[in-house]
């Protein structure tokens, strides 16, 4: 091996090619210019498409956040002015009922409400006849509450009655009824109405103008094809649904190539 000789050979060739200037083919510059021209619009198209997608994502996430933002909860407290609890009273001797009631005031209204709820529910299912009779909200509440309390009251009455008839059970009942009407009523029938309206609104034909319409409009402005890449819709529960048409995205890619 003789590196000096080899380098000399390389050197000879290098010198030879250094001054080598073959003629470039005639139309090559036109080809290059055409290819450069062709590339420019392609380059611009891709970022616009991605910007549209990015903008849509930002808008969607913003709206979703706004709809789910934390809201401070206000708890409403019912004021019980003259609370009397029939259950407590009737288990004890009727004579000592009044003083005991005043002593146990704070805990009672809660129990009463619970009972009212339970019976109101049962009422809804069982006694349709009674509900049909109800006309005005105030009467309604009184009626429903009365009827809600009535089974219990009736049972207590039967308990109490044999023990001591002379203690006028009618008085207790009257007192209970006035106490119930005095308590700010939570109206089960109203709740029922809400449910009904909810059920009615779930009818897909009557979809209200919602967030999805706005989003679809935004998509329409950036994506001007007949079929959109992203379509928004609301379902029965009001949550937002996104439909991606991936076949469109794929087609677009192919076209770029």
């Amino acid at each position: 091996m003789n590196p000096g000789k080899k380098n000399q050979f390389d050197e000879q060739l290098r010198e030879k090619f250094e001054g080598f200037r073959p003629d470039a083919p005639a139309g090559l510059w036109e080809k290059i210019a055409a290819e450069l021209d062709e590339q420019h619009p392609r380059r611009r198209r891709v970022p616009t498409w991605w910007m549209a997608v990015a903008a849509t994502i930002v808008v969607v996430s913003g709206i979703v956040y706004w709809q789910n933002r934390p809201v401070s909860v206000t708890y409403l407290h019912a004021r019980a002015e003259e609370p009397v609890f029939p259950a407590q009273k009737s288990t004890e001797p009727v004579a000592s009922a009044a003083p005991v009631d005043t002593a146990e005031l704070p805990a009672e209204p809660l129990d009463l409400e619970k009972l009212r709820h339970v019976f109101a529910k049962r009422e809804r299912n069982i006694s349709d006849k009674k509900r049909l009779r109800v006309q005005e909200p105030v009467e309604q509440s009184a009626e429903v509450l009365g009827s809600a309390a009535s089974p219990q009251l009736a049972s207590h009455e039967t308990e109490v009655a044999p023990a001591d008839r002379s203690l006028r059970p009618g008085d207790t009942l009257k007192k209970v009824n006035t106490a119930i009407t005095a308590v700010p009523p939570i109206e089960p029938p109203v709740v029922l109405e809400e449910e009904e309206t909810m059920l009615a609104s779930s009818d897909p034909a009557k979809q209200p103008f919602g967030v999805s319409s706005i989003l679809n409009y935004v998509v329409k402005t950036v994506d001007q094809r007949d079929e959109k890449l992203v379509t928004f819709s609301n379902d029965e529960e009001g949550s937002l649904k996104l439909d991606f048409n991936f076949s469109l995205a794929r087609n677009k890619k192919k076209r770029i190539k």
């Binding site: 003629d23 510059w29 290059i32 450069l36």
Partner: peptide
Amino acid sequence: NRQAQERLYRALASKMLGVCLR
């Protein structure tokens, strides 16, 4: 600039073709 690009091409095309040919 397309004109500048063409001038650069005209100046170097021949020499670079010599490289490519090898």
